[in-house]
């Protein structure tokens, strides 16, 4: 029990003293996971909209893949991205292995099915006749998608939260493709793993606390927006 207290005390001290390394790790975590979530949004939202509305041969296969991907183990993603990015891999010439960019790529891959799946689910909850009504109102294809997007904005907000939550807390992929290089690719989760294996449980707890506060504040801000319109 005193370990928990120690951890919390240490966490507060770290936060108050503004330890430069912890600050750097925290900012890198925000930058990497925020960017990964943004990328997954730009790809996943259109894909989710499309999958929800489109009819084509093999759609079920794709949807099944998306739904499976929502539970994809980060370690597996890390392995696949590693294989691609390794020096002697197909994308080796880009020199991205063990860089923050590599983590962004891996995390975007992890968040993509989450964002796609939740967007798709949100669209499918709309009345199927709404599609006809929007077209009947005189919407061009672009206007159509914009209106549908607006209709599912709270569902997409949930997708953002779930996507960000899934990447900011994952460790397997960040470790594999980032390498936990100090001052360069060390993010909160990999730092926690390292501190645990070093036996610095109080430091690990403190970093875990920082991670939770961070995740909670972002999610809280998004939740406020989402719940402003609650109907239940």
């Amino acid at each position: 029990m005193d370990l928990v207290v120690q951890g919390l005390v240490k966490a507060f001290r770290l936060l108050l003293s503004g330890d430069p390394e912890v600050l750097e790790i925290t900012l890198l975590t925000l930058r990497v996971s925020g960017l990964a979530t943004l990328i997954s949004l730009f790809l996943g939202v259109p894909l989710g909209l499309y999958l929800a509305v489109a009819r084509f041969r093999g759609r079920e296969l794709v949807v099944g893949a998306v739904n499976t991907g929502m539970g994809l183990p980060p370690t597996v993603v890390g392995l696949w991205v590693s294989i691609l990015l390794w020096r002697n891999g197909p994308l080796g010439m880009l020199g991205l292995m063990y860089t923050p960019t590599a983590i962004v790529i891996a995390q975007a891959v992890i968040a993509l099915p989450v964002v796609t799946g939740l967007t798709m689910a949100a669209v499918q909850q709309l009345s199927p006749k709404l599609r006809l009504q929007v077209l009947a109102l005189g919407a061009s294809p672009l206007q159509f998608w914009w209106i549908i997007l607006r209709e599912v904005r709270f569902g997409i907000l949930a997708a953002v939260m779930a996507g960000l939550g899934s990447v900011i807390s994952e460790v397997g992929a960040s470790m594999a493709v980032g390498g936990n290089v100090r001052g360069y690719t060390r993010v909160l989760t990999t730092a926690i793993v390292l501190e645990v294996s070093k036996g610095n449980f109080d430091m690990a707890l403190a970093l875990g606390f920082v991670l939770m506060v961070l995740t909670y504040s972002i999610t809280y801000a998004l939740t406020i927006v989402q719940q402003r319109r609650r109907r239940w």
């Binding site: 600050l23 750097e24 900012l27 890198l28 975590t29 925000l30 930058r31 990497v32 996971s33 925020g34 960017l35 979530t37 943004l38 949004l41 997007l149 607006r150 904005r153 997409i156 907000l157 953002v160 960000l164 001052g183 360069y184 972002i218 801000a221 998004l222 927006v225 402003r228 319109r229």
Partner: peptide, 27 residues
């Protein structure tokens, strides 16, 4: 209504960019 969506994107973007600025030469 789109301001909600834009706000949400802003939160994310700030998160991403905020992390970016003080990140000069890592080592």
């Amino acid at each position: 209504m789109k301001k909600y969506l834009i706000f949400a994107l802003c939160v994310l973007a700030t998160a991403a960019l905020f992390g970016c600025t003080p990140k000069a030469q890592p080592q």
